[in-house]
C-alpha cells in the first residue's frame, strides 16, 4: 500500500512537471489544443466515476455539472474579473452544492430515479441559461481570457497546463476516495445497500459525499472551458457528447478503480481528437454510442478487467 502510494506520488510529480515543461519543448500549439480536450475528459470521466463507478449511481447529467462550471466561471471572470484559479474553485464549490441538492432530492429512492433526475438536470439548467440574458441567452457570450502568465508561452499552452493540474488533482482525489474508508463504504453500497446499512455504513450520507465530490470535479472540468474556446453557448456547454463520454469512458476503461476512467478517457478522447479531423461529430457520437453498447453488453468490467483480473487489494 505504502509502496503504491509512493509510486503514485512519483507519477503525479512527473505528470505535473511535464505539464509545465512541455509548452516550452513542443512548438506546435495544436498538441496543446488537442491535449486540453483529452485532459478535460480525463477529469470528467474521473469525476463521474466517483459516484457512478464506486457507488454504482449512474449520472446522465454530467453535462449539467460541466455546463454549470463553464457558465459560472465565464460569469465570474467577465463580471468581477476573478482570476482563473478562483473561478475553478468557485465552480467546484457550486458543483458540489448542485450534487448534494440533486442527491438529496433523489437518493433516498432507487437508483433509477436518480438517473432519470440527472437527465432532467441538463434540460433544466440549459433552459435556465437560455433565459438569462446576462449570460448571453441562446446566442452565447464571448469571453476574452486573461493574458497567460510569464511562465507559459501562450494561451493554449497555459490552458493546457491548467488542465493538467485539474486532471491530476481529480485523479488524486478519486484515488484517495477509492483506497479510503469512503471508497470501501461506497463499494459496499454498490453491492448491497441494505447489507451496507446493516454493517454500520451511513449509506445516504456517503452517497451525498460521493455526489458532492463528483459534482465538484465535473464542474471544475468546465471552469477553464470559456478561456479555451473564448466563447460559450448553451449548446456546447451542455453538449450531449459530454454526458455520453462521461459514461462511456469509465465503462470502457473499467469502473472499479481510478485507473479505468483514465485509460478509457485517454483512449476514447484521443481517438475522437484524431477522428474529428476526418469525420463529423455525428459519426463521432455514433461511434461512442456503439462502443458503449458493446461494452455494457459484452464486457461490463471494462478494459482493465479484460487485461489482468482484479487482484484482491487488501490482504492480511
Amino acid at each position: 500500500m505504502k509502496k503504491n502510494s509512493l509510486l503514485f506520488l512519483a507519477g503525479v510529480i512527473i505528470v505535473l512537471a511535464l505539464g509545465f515543461l512541455m509548452p516550452w519543448l513542443l512548438r506546435n500549439p495544436f498538441y496543446f489544443f488537442a491535449g486540453y480536450v483529452v485532459l478535460q475528459y480525463v477529469t470528467i470521466a474521473t469525476g463521474w466515476n466517483i459516484l457512478g463507478g464506486y457507488a454504482g449511481y449512474i449520472n446522465f447529467g454530467a453535462a449539467g455539472f460541466f455546463g454549470a462550471g463553464v457558465y459560472l466561471s465565464a460569469f465570474l471572470f467577465t463580471t468581477f474579473g476573478l482570476p482563473l484559479p478562483l473561478c475553478i474553485l468557485a465552480a467546484a464549490i457550486v458543483g458540489a452544492i448542485l450534487g448534494v441538492l440533486m442527491g438529496y432530492l433523489t437518493l433516498r429512492i432507487q437508483g433509477v430515479y436518480f438517473a432519470i433526475a440527472t437527465l432532467g438536470l441538463v434540460v433544466v439548467l440549459e433552459t435556465i441559461v437560455h433565459n438569462i440574458s446576462g449570460l448571453g441567452g441562446a446566442s452565447g457570450m464571448a469571453v476574452y481570457g486573461p493574458r497567460p502568465p510569464a511562465w507559459s508561452p501562450g494561451p493554449s499552452q497555459y490552458n493546457f497546463t491548467v488542465m493538467v493540474v485539474i486532471a491530476v488533482a481529480s485523479v488524486a482525489l478519486a484515488r484517495w476516495v477509492e483506497i479510503s474508508w469512503i471508497g470501501r463504504g461506497l463499494r459496499a453500497v454498490r453491492a448491497s445497500e441494505d447489507a451496507a446499512e446493516c454493517s454500520g455504513v451511513p449509506t445516504l450520507r456517503l452517497k451525498l459525499v460521493a455526489c458532492a465530490l463528483s459534482g465538484a470535479v465535473l464542474a471544475a472540468a468546465g471552469a477553464p472551458y470559456p478561456f479555451y474556446t473564448s466563447f460559450v453557448e448553451p449548446v456546447t456547454a451542455f453538449s450531449l457528447i459530454i454526458g455520453l463520454n462521461a459514461i462511456a469512458m469509465p465503462l470502457i476503461g473499467g469502473t472499479r478503480t481510478w485507473v479505468g476512467p483514465v485509460i478509457g478517457a485517454l483512449l476514447l478522447a484521443s481517438v475522437q481528437q484524431i477522428a474529428t479531423v476526418t469525420i463529423s461529430s455525428e459519426l463521432n457520437i455514433l461511434f461512442v454510442g456503439a462502443v458503449l453498447i458493446a461494452f455494457v453488453a459484452f464486457a461490463p468490467g471494462g478494459i482493465s478487467d479484460l487485461f489482468g483480473r482484479n487482484k484482491g487489494r487488501a490482504r492480511p
Partner: peptide
Amino acid sequence: FTGMTVFENLLVPLDY
C-alpha cells in the same frame, strides 16, 4: 459485497 475480497468484506463493518 461483490467486487471485494472476503477479507475486505469484513473491513467494511470494521471501518464504520
